[in-house]
């Protein structure tokens, strides 16, 4: 165990808790995700999905527990970890007053991306936004902003993608296209992906494995092979008490 297991897995979480003041948002989460695996996290609002993603993204610090990403400890090597992950959420992290190009160029500088200009063009082509690259972000539609946001997350060629409600504003057709852009890594191997979503059907279609969270804990875990959509809905209702 230990060293060997963490070498082979992309993400390893052991006994993670996170508290905000007196409120415990994560109450002991443990989870191992293999390289190239795609894992979807379901759960109602307040289940702790976003908190978990933010801890993995090194935006939040764990209160206790161990979090290893590519065998690096988040407490001690957060800066190195950030080079391995790309984050897309329902908020775009883009500056409305700057053009899409300027936004991408800014983040490319922050990630020390070599040959910035070419790389920005590359990721813009990947999300199909080459033609609108010099428009101000505030003039773009919500879906286009989300595409630019995905391009931003891909700039530094991360091996792991963290997607928190990332399909916000995107139509189903675009989602499929962008999914393959995010899923396919630089060397053709699939990227490791963790995503959270409200949409059970779409999430189910995309994942290798699924988790259901509620009240800061992982309540259910299953591989997609052993479950169909009806089974998932049943499990979801059983775990969360929410009727769909």
């Amino acid at each position: 165990m230990g060293q060997e297991a963490s070498q082979s897995s992309a993400i390893e979480v052991r006994g993670l808790t996170k508290s905000f003041g007196d409120r415990l948002a994560l109450k002991g989460v443990s989870l191992t995700i293999a390289r190239g695996e795609s894992v979807v996290i379901f759960g109602p609002n307040g289940a702790g999905k976003t908190t978990l993603v933010k801890v993995l993204a090194t935006i939040l610090k764990p209160t206790s527990g161990r979090v290893l990403i590519n065998a690096l400890e988040v407490k001690s090597s957060a800066e190195a970890i950030r080079r391995h992950i790309g984050v897309v959420t329902h908020q775009t992290f883009l500056y409305g007053n700057l053009t899409a190009y300027e936004n991408l160029d800014f983040y490319a500088r922050m990630f020390d991306v070599p040959r910035r200009r070419e790389r920005v063009q590359e990721v813009a082509a990947l999300v199909g936004m080459t033609s609108r690259l010099h428009d101000r972000v505030s003039t773009l539609s919500r879906g286009m902003q989300q595409r630019i946001s995905i391009a931003r997350a891909l700039l530094h060629k991360p091996g792991i993608m963290l997607l928190d409600e990332a399909e916000t504003g995107l139509d189903p057709q675009a989602t499929g296209l962008l999914w393959s852009a995010m899923r396919t890594g630089e060397n053709g191997e699939p990227r490791t992906i963790i995503l959270t979503t409200h949409n059970l059907e779409r999430g189910f279609a995309l994942c290798d494995r699924l988790l259901i969270m509620g009240q800061g804990k992982i309540l259910y875990e299953a591989s997609r092979q052993v479950l169909d959509l009806t089974g998932l809905i049943e499990a979801y209702q059983h775990c969360t008490g929410v009727r769909i």
């Binding site: 935006i59 950030r82 992290f93 500056y95 983040y107």
Partner: peptide, 18 residues
């Protein structure tokens, strides 16, 4: 306030720097 508008502050926090 500009950093909070589309939560750009989180965007800065995931950049590899102190």
């Amino acid at each position: 306030i500009v950093e909070k508008e589309d939560n750009c502050l989180d965007g800065l926090l995931i950049c590899p720097m102190s």
